[in-house]
């Protein structure tokens, strides 16, 4: 059976680690990384990639527009 699958790509260098995307994600896909980018921010990443449904909530609330969202049927 076809399943909706999503994924997000975070522009790590431009992410400011505000955490709004983490909060907005209904499936708890995202988290802030322990690593920091060159500006010292704990950037967002897919901590649980399997759970992403491609709803784009994270990208909608991201103030810095650094999230690209993909969605497909698999």
């Amino acid at each position: 059976m076809a399943k909706i699958k999503g994924a997000v790509k975070v522009d790590i260098e431009k992410c400011k680690g505000c955490g709004l995307c983490v909060e907005a994600c209904p499936t708890k896909t995202l988290d802030l990384s322990k690593e920091v980018n060159s500006k010292g921010y704990n950037y967002a990443y897919m901590a649980d990639p399997d759970s992403c449904i491609g709803c784009a909530n994270c990208a909608l609330v991201c103030p810095d527009s650094v999230i690209t969202v993909y969605k497909t049927k698999i």
């Binding site: 784009a56 990208a59 690209t68 993909y70």
Partner: peptide, 11 residues
């Protein structure tokens, strides 16, 4: 999944 044609949201 992360292919150009599957993009549903971008800047």
């Amino acid at each position: 999944i992360m292919k150009e044609e599957n993009i549903v949201y971008k800047k």
